[in-house]
């Protein structure tokens, strides 16, 4: 199985690579268009600020490539947010895969949300053998509201999307690569799609 992690200069991609290795697979870091197109699974990571991450994607031309991919694609954290229509962070136009607008937590709770929160209303093969109310590790200040494409919700003063899916595109707000056994299971489920 050919697994690629899109390398566009944003984020902690080493950890994702290691997490895939712990599952017994190899993942290649790449920004090469044909390598991404020919992969069986594509992971789209992202950490940091939305606008500068989007600019890096645009300057590498990958913003046009990602929405055209046909194989399973998993966006993680900021990767998931960039797959949405729009992010309030840096007034950023996203890839438009998920029809929702990312917005900042503004409900009196501490920002960023850092730590382990529970996921529920799980609605995707991505969560096979993962129980309702399982804990996943998150670090984020912006969130995607609950929408038609929501496949998992969490509660941080309000209910928001902790995972989204549309066709072959999956996005998780949490970091499966850092979410202990449950996170590895999710990554394995993605590789099994």
């Amino acid at each position: 199985m050919k697994i690629v992690i899109i390398d566009y200069g944003a984020g902690n991609i080493q950890s994702i690579k290691f997490a895939i290795e712990r599952l017994g697979f190899e993942a290649k870091l790449t920004s090469n268009v044909s390598e991404i197109q020919n992969a069986d699974k594509v992971i789209f990571p992202g950490v940091g600020e939305a606008n500068s991450a989007m600019n890096m994607l645009v300057s590498s031309g990958l913003n046009n490539l990602i929405p055209t991919l046909k194989q399973p694609v998993l966006g993680i954290c900021l990767g998931m947010q960039l797959m949405c229509d729009y992010s309030e962070e840096g007034d950023t136009k996203g890839l438009g895969i998920f029809k929702t607008n990312v917005t900042k937590f503004d409900n009196g709770l501490k920002v960023p949300q850092i730590g382990w929160n529970q996921i529920s209303n799980l609605k995707s093969p991505l969560f096979k053998d993962i129980s309702e109310n399982e804990y996943m590790y998150l670090v984020h200040s912006y969130y995607a509201p609950v929408c038609n494409e929501t496949i998992a919700v969490s509660d941080y003063g309000l209910q928001y999307s902790n995972a989204l899916q549309k066709d072959n595109f999956y996005g998780v707000q949490f970091h499966p690569e850092k979410s202990s056994i449950a996170g590895s299971k999710l990554l394995k489920n993605f590789l099994d799609l």
Partner: peptide
């Protein structure tokens, strides 16, 4: 750091 990242699945 590399050794820890390779072997540990929490932040």
């Amino acid at each position: 750091v590399l050794d820890v990242a390779a072997q540990v699945n929490i932040p």
